[in-house]
Amino acid sequence: MANTALADPDAGLPPAQLAARHGLRVAGQRPSLRRYSSQLWKYRHFIAAYANAKLTASFSNARLGQLWQVLTPLTNAAVYYLIFGLVLEQSRGMDNFIAYLTTGLFIFNFTQTTVQQGTQAISGNLGLIRALHFPRACLPLAITVTQFQQLLGSLAVLVGIVLATGEPITLAWLMLVPAVLLQSVFNAGLTMAVARLGAKATDLKQVMPFILRAWMYGSGVLYSVKLFSENLPGWATALVQFNPMLVYIELARVALLENAPLLNDSLFLTWLVAVGWAIVMGLGGYLYFWRGEQEYGRG
């Protein structure tokens, strides 16, 4: 060894040992969870910039530009009110159906669009993924941030509608803040989960609209939630009570509306379920996404 060392200390070393000796790592290896999380934290500016960029880009071809952020939810609410409020008369026996409907619609829409775009977070950004190295969780997280910004636009519209339909401003309105934040954490986790699923199973994009529509009907967005307890057997109603979307929507309704019909009688239990879902989905989605980190952009 001493003789050959003068010329080249690495001579004759098998490649694996040579690599180990100089601290080289296997290409494309997944970082540890701790390392990954700290990397992700370092990339927070990228997440924010990417989310902003996406938001601007999505309106860049429209002449009305950012105005659509408000116009889209408004038109949406108008269409659903026309069908479910006036044609199907779901408003029977309800004090303020317009506000009830729009609250549910906007809160559900937040999760819906986030998940829809999340399925393509990886598969739609292969160019970026193959070109540059960054923690891939940035992409689904940026989608959540973009949609959160959209939600703020919708909420401004919502407050307008709620006030215009005669609801008073109360202290309960403050509850909207933690409710929406919990939902955002839930969304972030769910988006990461579907991002990994969508990266492998490209068919998910085709299936997702159906899943989301079924979920919407199960969340009491378009009609009174009392219909669940009236028409479903007891166990099924209990199951619906644990539906995360129903829970987040109910919390928003409790916060904004005076006499909205609710499925969950105990507000405390509702909060508990909301927090539970945020933790389970937030952490679970993150772990699930991280475990697939080395696979994204391959193939």
Binding site: A16, H22, R25, A27, H133
Partner: peptide, 26 residues
């Protein structure tokens, strides 16, 4: 670059290699 897994054998790298291709879309 670590973007394709090796079927057999191994690739060891220093740090994180960056791949710059013409089809890298922003």
């Amino acid at each position: 670059a670590g973007l394709l897994p090796v079927e057999r054998g191994a690739v060891y790298t220093q740090g994180q290699p960056s791949l710059l291709g013409v089809n890298a879309a922003l």
